[in-house]
Design a protein around this nucleic acid. Structure first.
Lengths: 339, 339
DNA sequence: AACGTTTCCGGTAACGTTACCGAAATCTTT
DNA sequence: AAAGATTTCGGTAACGTTACCGGAAACGTT
């Protein structure tokens, strides 16, 4: 491995001069700079980023903490983040946590040692110990969800969509096309964004004076299979239901599958609506009405926010909300009069 | 940010002693070690990995170069890699290249500056300039595909599945259930693994003395849509076809969609078989017979190979082939006698 | 030709850590 | 209690780079 010293020695120059050439700094003659750059190429010299980080107290690396990169949501976010940062010479250290607190803490303390310049993360709970680690990083942070009321004091920026309003509007759409008995299928009480979606669902029903009780909400679990078990339980509790709002597309697809297998006609007998707009949701067998999330944009915009915080001296925290879009497909339709 | 000096000064010790405590080295009394560790916690000290890397000439970081993290194949590979390396305290720097040579070179030269310890990569072409960058890294490398004949001299390990044999066996299965007119839909001539799959397809037909000409091969493009255009062109050229082997699941799904829209019965009139076994391929509407790839295992095993190379003094390159599995579902069936 | 400016370059220190060597402190043996 | 053996510690150099300061060289002015 060649060092700046080798280059300096090769040309009979000092390391300072070579460093100046390398970093496009002033106080160096044009010709000597060119000579240096040429020698660098010839000697296959490549600067040592670790040494540079050490003295500049800036690593040009950022951390990206997400729960599961195989989740299409996160992989697109990751793509967006990389898209932005690779253009400005930052490297990304990524880690999957599966919302496991220990893994999250482990990853954060690794980042702490690496002296990263910034962090984009989607943790589970904002545990006190976790937040203490985040604070010790002493770098700007972008959180990929909203802050709860008791977290508002934290000095970190956030970016997210308005889950509440998106759900509200989706349910309102169902009501507008005639549905009066609408069910909800969720995966877990512990997920922030699902709670917001459920609140939007509930408030919308209440605002339209429609029946709403524990009977039209089922929390079944995560994944396609639980969409099936979810709607099954829902139909048992409330056979009159004509429309279902699922907390995400996978659940909705599972529900569609169950309905098909049990000879329900969609949307004539039951309308189904999802949340996220996965790529497969537009397949003609599925054709799911759903709420489209700007996944890649969440990635790019969070990266741009972080970039901005990195460059501006005293940044103030921002809380950004991105728009969603209701994509109407064939899994939803007017309530039939004779059903 | 606290340094080792702060800890040393706090206890009236030397930095050497503190370093010894930090790294569990000998030549230190048990009690002083405990005192030091306690002081580190109290002062919120965290070692600086960059400084450590500098003197140890070892960064504890590895590079992961893939084409597109939103591709389920790569995201699972990435998960597997992270799974293995996070357990041993390595960080992963990842980058998407979209098989763009410039992006690949850019990423590699970034890794060069970072002084990574190892690299796992899936590049497009093994361009000479690219390989020169890889060699300059002077670290063990695992390639996520096979080496061509003219690349065999390269001192890098590989891991991949046997695309040729997997395709061969898939086509043989179609032949065994009675099909004699089988078509192939591919996405591009430039993708190594597809070429292998096509060779397996061709050789299998030839070995069974079945008709094989340019007429039963269509190269249409990438993505679900091109599965539709692909099969359409295939049916125009060869209306007698009763089975189709698609180079990947997305193409197969596109083909299924086209068949459904054009009132072909699957598998009664046309059997369809894919390659990869995406999660959605098992949805009951699709139910695609396909070749299952051990995606996560490719990730974990490549990581373990790299780990091994990192620890052993003089590693020899290995070329590993993982098994595939033919998953038979309802998109394929016996050739009907009267068709 | 002497002076002041500007341009360009070199030397030294520093970043935070570990490697290495030598010396102090403690323990063992006689 | 003195000698040696062992344990424990400190000081210094080094990793590869940039920051900073001072001075030499080149230029322009009178």
């Amino acid at each position: 491995m060649r060092t700046i010293k080798d280059v300096a020695h090769e040309l009979g120059l000092s390391v300072s001069t070579v460093s100046r050439a390398l970093n496009d700094k002033p106080d160096i003659k044009k010709e000597t700079r060119e000579k240096v750059l040429e020698a660098m190429k010839r000697l296959n010299y490549s600067p040592n980023a670790n040494a540079r980080s050490l003295i500049q107290k800036k690593s040009n690396m950022i951390g990206l903490m997400l729960s599961d990169i195989t989740d299409p949501f996160f992989s697109e976010v990751a793509l967006g983040v990389e898209d932005v940062f690779s253009k400005v010479g930052y490297q990304i250290i990524y880690g999957n946590t599966f919302l496991d607190l220990d893994k999250e803490k482990q990853f954060l303390s690794n980042l702490l040692e690496r002296k990263i310049d910034g962090l984009i993360m989607k943790p589970g709970k904002l545990d006190a110990e976790l937040m203490s680690l985040v604070e010790r990083l002493e770098v700007p942070v972008v959180l990929l969800r909203k802050l709860d009321e008791n977290e508002k004091h934290l000095n970190i920026s956030t970016i997210d969509v308005d889950h509440y309003m998106a759900a509200y509007k989706a349910v309102e759409y169902l009501i507008n096309i005639g549905h009066q008995n609408i069910g909800f299928i969720g995966m877990s009480k512990d997920v922030n964004e699902e709670e917001e979606r459920l609140n939007g669902f509930s408030d919308c029903l209440r605002d339209h004076s429609l029946e709403h009780s524990v009977d039209n909400v089922v929390i079944s679990g995560t994944g396609i299979k639980h969409g099936g078990t979810g709607i099954q339980r829902l139909m048992e509790k409330k056979p009159k239901i004509t429309a279902v709002f699922a907390a995400n597309d996978l659940l909705a697809i599972g529900a569609l599958e169950w309905l098909a297998k049990n000879n329900y006609r969609v949307p004539e007998e039951v309308s189904v609506i999802g949340f996220e707009d996965l790529e497969i949701s537009s397949l003609h067998w599925i054709n799911l009405t759903t709420v489209k999330l700007p996944r890649k944009k969440i990635g790019t915009q969070s990266a741009e926010m972080l970039m901005h915080m990195l460059s501006s001296e005293n940044f103030e925290k921002k809380e950004v909300e991105l728009d969603t879009q209701l994509i109407i497909r064939k899994s939803s339709g007017n309530k039939q009069i004779n059903s």
